[in-house]
Each structure stands twice: as C-alpha cells, then as structure tokens.
Simulated scan of single mutants.
Amino acid sequence: MLPWITLDTAKIPDAGVAGGEGELRLKQRGQEFSIMLGTNELMNSRLSGSEEALANLGCVRIAGRARPDVLIGGLGMGFTLRAALAALGADARVTVAELVPAVVAWARGPMAGLFAGSLEDPRVTIREADVGRVMGERAASFDAILLDVDNGPEGLTAEANDSLYSTAGLGMARAALRPGGVFAVWSAAPDAAFAKRLKGVGFSVEEVRVRANRGRSGTRHVIWLAVKGGGGDAPLPRSR
C-alpha cells in the first residue's frame, strides 16, 4: 500500500482547539487526499456523499427561484460546491466563505483535479473570510446557506466556529435569508440541543441522515434543513 505523504500544513486563524494543535495537514496517498487536524480526519476525497447531499437537499428547496443567491460556509474539498453548481441554473450566484486561506490554495494547487474547474465557474465568488462575517454583511439576501464548517455543532477546530451554532449565530443565519430560504447544516453526528436551538430562533426543521460514501452502508452523517417562514413554505423533502 502506498504511504501517506504530507503535502502542506496550515495554521487555523484564531484557533482555540480541543484535542488538536490548531494546524491542518494536507496529505496524499496516490489519488486520495485527506485533511487532518491532529489525529482527526476532517475530510477525505473518497467520502463525498454527505457533502453532496448537503447541496442537493438545500438546493431542491429553492428550485424555481429566479437568480438564486447561495452562500456556502466552508470550501473543504469542493464536493458541496460542485454539487450546488450542478443543481443550480446559469443565473445563480454562489459565494463560498473559507476561513483558512491555505485551503483555497490547496484547491487551486494539489487538489485542483477534485475541483474540476468549479472555482473558475463565473457563478462562483470565493471569500477568504469567516462565514459568520459574510452572513452579517447581508441581511435578507440569501436563498440558501449551506454550512459545512468544522465537524458540525460539536467542533474540533477554531473555537470561533462555536458561535455559528449558538442561538445568536443561528439568529444571524436566519436574518441573512430571504423569506422561505433554507439553512442547511452538515454534522458528523446528531445533536438534539442544536435542533432545539434551530427551532428556538424560528426555523421549521427536519433532520436527515445521509451516508458518507453514497452507498447503502457505512457511516451516516446528519443534515439539518431549517426553513425561514414567510415564503409559503412547502413541506420539506423526506429522507429515504
């Protein structure tokens, strides 16, 4: 078996880390990539199913809207971005907020093959900024916010990410959405308290379990679909 090779490391801005040293490592083994924090694997290029589901489940809720405006929190390995672009029309706008500049550099460099030209899509804008800052700049602007930051509500990287999942952070996300907009959140595991907070700030909520590897077996991740009222909300799509 081919050995893992560390291609690069990157410090996490303002990192306060539980169980890690605040440094991301990009590793490669053959055609496989991994992003690690300490002993925790945050992303692997073989496991894209739940990140793609985040985009697909979020975008189906805004199908038919003219010129939809979508915000993606976290660039990662680009699976959510690519799935969103495939699901959206030519008139869409997609902003990706990525806190760690090196992740953007990796996407344009060693992992460019995974991104398959998606960063050059004219619909895409990359912001090297905290997604909370981007949400705070634009009230009632987004049709969908797709959040794939850290490990979900139980984060591993920057302590600043915790604020995104707090009551105040969720209220900010709701304020950034247009009526009927969807806030879709990826998580490695269920979190009943987080679902309660979503409902507490006024979202209607569904929790969907999806496979990490697109198949019928293996690890399941969680996606919350939280809809802002006021737009004649239709029933949420049901999980299979």
Rank of each mutant, 00 (worst) to 15 (best):
I223G: 01
V185K: 05
S204W: 01
V210S: 06
L198W: 11
F194D: 05
G202C: 07
A189D: 12
R211Y: 04
L225M: 10
A192L: 11
R211K: 10
A188H: 10
L225S: 11
R197F: 00
L198P: 06
A188S: 13
G200R: 04
G215L: 10
G215H: 12
I223L: 14
G200M: 02
V208M: 08
N213H: 11
W224H: 07
E206S: 15
L225W: 00
W224P: 03
P190D: 11
A193H: 03
F194Q: 11
A212K: 06
S187V: 01
K196M: 13
E207I: 00
W186P: 04
R209G: 08
E207M: 08
A192C: 09
G200N: 09
N213S: 07
R197Q: 14
E207H: 08
V208D: 01
G202E: 03
E207T: 14
R197A: 15
E206Y: 00
W224I: 06
A195Q: 15
D191M: 02
G218W: 06
S217Y: 06
G215R: 15
V185L: 03
R209T: 13
I223M: 02
A193S: 12
A195G: 07
T219L: 07
V222F: 04
I223N: 01
A184P: 03
K199Y: 00
R220S: 14
F203M: 05
R214D: 13
G218S: 09
F194P: 04
S187T: 02
R220C: 07
V208L: 11
V222E: 10
F203A: 10
F194E: 12
V210R: 04
R214G: 01
G202D: 05
V208P: 02
A192N: 12
G202H: 09
S217V: 14
R214T: 07
R211S: 11
R216W: 09
A192Q: 14
L225T: 05
T219F: 04
A212H: 01
R214P: 00
A195D: 14
H221F: 09
E206I: 08
V201E: 14
N213P: 02
P190Q: 09
G200Q: 07
D191L: 06
G200C: 03
A189T: 15
S187W: 01
D191C: 14
F203K: 03
A192I: 05
I223T: 03
R216H: 05
R214I: 00
K196V: 09
A189C: 02
G218K: 05
L198K: 09
W186L: 10
E207Q: 15
S204L: 06
F203C: 07
L225H: 04
T219G: 02
V185F: 00
K196E: 15
F203Y: 13
A188G: 15
P190C: 11
V210D: 02
V208T: 09
V201P: 15
W186R: 10
F194T: 06
G202S: 08
